[in-house]
Structure formats: structure tokens, C-alpha cells
Design a protein around this nucleic acid. Structure first.
Lengths: 184, 184
DNA sequence: AATCCCATGTAATCTGTTACATGATTGC
DNA sequence: GCAATCATGTAACAGATTACATGGGATT
């Protein structure tokens, strides 16, 4: 139940068309909640139908025509209620951890190569986050409540990437190349 | 595409019935890939149909009768291939980070309460992992390739919980009670 | 008129969740 | 016999992914 709220948040930050939203879900909001344009258009339809957002009046709203959306008061209220709502953290569900566990049973095979590849991807993502941090939250700047919260979210991303980098390095250290298979 | 491989891994570790698998997905494997019994039964059916596992011969395989499964060579091969396969890390998709971002727009409301609740849950989970580590991987024990990999997976869980605890504490520190709402 | 890009969608499929149904076994 | 529990499933739906379809405007 997070996608509609991700969209409401994005639209409150700046009213947008479906495509513009899609672009923003490739960065910014999308760093913490990804979505494709199909999901976004479908959800925009539902949100409009539910009276949480509305399309800004435009000449002719036909197919292929840009349609800008803005959040209605009901939408803002729903988002505020969601922020407060109790919702348990989802248990971890990560394919890489699972693959490591499988490797313990069938042997690591070429997992080392894959780990190195992931390491590079996480390092690149970390670098991207750090550049954003430098640009948007330079050290020593006074910031308001809004900025503090947004910075905190970014810190979360940075620390998660840092965790992965450390964990993968640890994994690679204990994994020569083609290790021998454990017992059948 | 991870659920079938999670099941193959679990069945290689120990042939089991559907219900026994379900129980094990509440701990162990389930710490890194959760699944309900409905998912498991459905997937067991597909895996059997696909010739990756088979039900051990039993008296009368009717409804309500226990059915034990074991992995066939094709299943082991598929799992080994999956361990090697290139599969990009999924982008972060976390409701709590998203809620923090939404809080930057609509104000934190009672998010602090929710954060404290999550903090307690993560602390409990961390404790559970640490007890497992003490029990299964006591310091100074020599361990084989299999144990090293399984320990590494557990370390991943421990470090992830540690991250969340740190991050939530950081968040709570910068969030008195009911902060004032930022701009409309 | 052909091609490309912007923009909005539909359809099919897969994965995951929630609620419910059915049969077998065991203890009372 | 009845209730509780073990065990295996069905059905309906919600959410996410992938592939494809449609149309407008600009460029060449």
C-alpha cells in the first residue's frame, strides 16, 4: 500500500504529469520506492477516481495529451494519516543473501564474479548519493525540519549502500575463486 | 524468481513436507526469504510438475496426507545455475524511508511513536540473530566452507538490523514530539 | 511520408496476500 | 462422538513486471 503514498508525496513536492512522475521515480523518490510508468498511470487513475488528486484543467484531455495532476485536500489528509499509521517492518527478503545460503549447499560456483559485479554497482550508487548529499545538504548549513528529514532519508540510503559494500567485501575475502563443493 | 530457489535450498538442506517447510520459513531460511504456506504449496506443485523435485513414495497421497519432497538432480542443477546467474540488486523499496520522506512534506505527526515501535522490533530481531550466532557459530570454532557461508548470511542479517537501529535512533534524536508542520 | 520522441495507456502474466475449505489423526 | 491440531489445498484478489498499442508533435 505504499505506491499511492509515494505518488502523493511526489505530487505534493511538485504537481506533475504521468511521464514527469515516471522520470522522478528514476531518481529522488525512486531511490526509496521504485515504480514503472505502467504502475504510475494505473495508480493515478485510481487516485483521481478516489478524489485524492485531480487533473489540472487542460484544453483537450485525449490520448497523447499531457495531463498535469495536483493533490486535493483529501489526498494530503490520507498521506498524513499514512505517516502516522502503524505498519510493521517487512522481514528481510533479499535474493543475494538467499543465493549465498544456496551456495552453502550447492557450492559457490562463480558467485565471486557476481559479488564483484554487485560491489561495483553498490559503490556507484553510494557515490551518487554522496554527490547528492554534498550538493543538497552541504556540511555546516542550517536546515529546517523539512531538510532535516529529507537528509535523514538520504543518510539511510548511504548507510544501506555502505552496509552492502562492507558485507560483499567480507564475502569476497572468504571466497577464493572456485571453491570446492561441500558434501552432496 | 527467488521463491522456487529458496524452496530448493531448504529441501536440499533437509527433505520435508509442505507444512514442515512452512515452519522452517518462519525461521532459518525465512529470515531472508519469507513465504506463506499457500505460496509454498503452489510452488511445490510447480516444481514437481517441472521435474525438479519429487514426492517420496507414500501409501496413499490423498488430501490431508503428509507428502515428503526431495530434490532431483535437475533441481540441484537449476539451483547451482541460479547461484551463478547475473541478477542486478533490486533498488531499495522501503516504506519507512518513504514515510519519512512524506513526513518532510506533510509534517511528522505521530511518526515518533511508530519509529520507537520499529526500534523495539529491530532490537528484538537483532537479539534473536545474536543468540543464533552464539549457538551455531561460537567464537573460535573452526568451520568449513558451508559454515562460513551460512555464518556470512547471518552476519548480513545482524548488520542490517544494526543499521536500522542506528538509523531510527538518529531519526528519533532529531524529532522531538509533535513537530510543527512545514509550509502548506 | 518516414522517423523519432513525448505522452498515455491496455493486456497478459507472475508473485504475493488473505480468506476459506477439506480431510486425517489424536486426545478427551 | 467432539474438539483440537496436523496437513494440504482452492479461490479471489492485490501488486508488480513485461510486452505491446495508440496518438501527437517535431524534424528531416
Amino acid at each position: 500500500m505504499s505506491l499511492p503514498h509515494a505518488i502523493l508525496t511526489a505530487l505534493l513536492e511538485k504537481p506533475s504529469s504521468g511521464l514527469a512522475l515516471t522520470r522522478r521515480f528514476d531518481k529522488s523518490i525512486g531511490y526509496f520506492w521504485s515504480a514503472t510508468h505502467q504502475q504510475i498511470y494505473r495508480e493515478l487513475g485510481k487516485l483521481e477516481e478516489g478524489g485524492l488528486i485531480r487533473a489540472l484543467p487542460s484544453p483537450q484531455p485525449t490520448r497523447g495529451q499531457k495531463k498535469e495532476y495536483e493533490v486535493l485536500p483529501a489526498g494530503r489528509a490520507e498521506l498524513a494519516a499514512w505517516v502516522d499509521r502503524a505498519e510493521d517492518p517487512k522481514p528481510i527478503r533479499d535474493p543475494l543473501l538467499l543465493r549465498m545460503r544456496a551456495a552453502a549447499v550447492v557450492g559457490p560456483g562463480g558467485l565471486g564474479v557476481e559479488l564483484s559485479r554487485h560491489l561495483a554497482l553498490h559503490q556507484a550508487q553510494l557515490k551518487e548519493y554522496e554527490e547528492i548529499e554534498e550538493r543538497d545538504f552541504p556540511a555546516g548549513a542550517r536546515d529546517g525540519a523539512q531538510d532535516r528529514l529529507r537528509h535523514l532519508v538520504l543518510r539511510g540510503g548511504i548507510e544501506l549502500e555502505t552496509f552492502w559494500i562492507g558485507w560483499i567485501e567480507e564475502a569476497l575475502a572468504g571466497m577464493p575463486e572456485a571453491d570446492s563443493e561441500p558434501g552432496a
